[in-house]
Design a protein around this nucleic acid. Sequence first.
RNA 1: GGCCCUAUCGUCUAAUGGUUAGGACGCGGCCUUUUCAAGGCUGCAAUCGGGGUUCGACUCCCCGUAGGGUCGCCA
Length: 438
Amino acid sequence: MKNNEIVVRIPPSPTGYFHVGRARTALFNYLFAKKNGGKIVFRIEDTDKERSKREFEEDIVESLKWLGITYDEGPFRQSERNDIYRESIQKMIKNGSAYISEESEGSNKEVVRFKNPGGKIKFEDIIRGEVEMEIDDLKDFIIAKNIDEPLYHLTVVVDDFLMGVTHIIRGDDGISNTPRQILLQEAIGAPRPKYAHVPLILAPDKSKMSARHGAVSLRDFREAGYLPEAIVNFLGLLGFNPGGEREIYKMSELIEVFDLSRVQKGGAVFNTEKLDWINKEHIKLLSEKERNETIKKYLEKNGFKNPNPKIFPIIFEHISKWGDIDKMTREGELDFYFKTPEYETHLLFWKGKEDKETTKKHLNWILEKISTVDFESVESAKNLIFDYATEQGRGEVLWPLRVALSGKEKSPDPFTLLYVLGSVESKKRIENAINKLS
RNA sequence: GGCCCUAUCGUCUAAUGGUUAGGACGCGGCCUUUUCAAGGCUGCAAUCGGGGUUCGACUCCCCGUAGGGUCGCCA
């Protein structure tokens, strides 16, 4: 089933944390390779010694792993392959396709330039169709600072050739590099791979998504508490759609339906709301156990020791990503589960109607009613009170009860609160409320 | 500015010559045992403009327009 004809590559340069755009390109490469039984080569393009950092390389490796994008070969580091590039440069100089050029500007007085034949370069792009570009204004572009310091175009072409890369699936912003690389391929006698330039991921203002637009690196999303499967789902469907109306896909399902020729031509705006929705859908797909464990972990991280497991499903209902738990904590939305709430007395009144006696009456009724029982379920709490509430006016009874228990204008329903808090704590809070009214 | 690319609801997209232009996110309304959330139902909302080709264009061609990418001894 292995199709050894197909080889793709994932070639990040470790000059920053792994960017979502690059992640998506990596994902498309992965999907394409897996779909067609091809091979994936992972190559670190760290020829720029100034900007390349191990920290970034590690981040990229980790991010790929987090997403579930695996590779068959590598990582290779271009910085460790100088012998290979040197040989190519020398060969090109020898056959006249490159030459050492004396410079009056720049930081080196001699560089290696490629002899540009000029004219036009035409190539076939799987996504865009036929593309033709003029190359005259490329001049004799530089392929190495010197014989031991090769530059991007040269290293890419040499490596793609040596690693047997058949399909180059990369971001749209690299399309203008293609003619240069084709020229180089011809000079070293490499076959021309097939190209597919995927459109860019755009910020809401339609410009290329970059750091000034907020969260752009995978680690940002990881830290915000997104699920990797949601990121994969979202990115996989950004600029690609298999047709049909399905929105939620797992990696394996994405592989099945992936088709490079269905990739969109235009850029796609990164829509965080949709990502959040997709993330929530994937949280729903988790097992209850897995979900609860993560919620517990986040609660503890936020300083809530030994959280009551009864609140896990409530929290689940209110979040679209784990990081929302951090936010809820910060905004004090969770405090009432753990300690007696503080609130303005006025909040106790249904629709702001300052009727102390009635409010007290209802609260007292409930207090008495619950003093002898404990709640086995939300239902049992409801059964105890609901008929009375219906008779007396649901808002009149239920609103003050809810406020007494939560101290909040917005919270889960009072029966759930009763069940979660238990009768002892509930009684205490209701008594509190009654005291406030006296 | 040169070169290149792109163009369907606000956003992601479906419809590859014939549909009341479909779905999703978001937004509004209603319902669902007070509020919030969740859920259900429902509503608003698009083929950039102009020419062709064709019996018939979202779909094909041309010209505009708009947006984007790229023009390093970075990758």
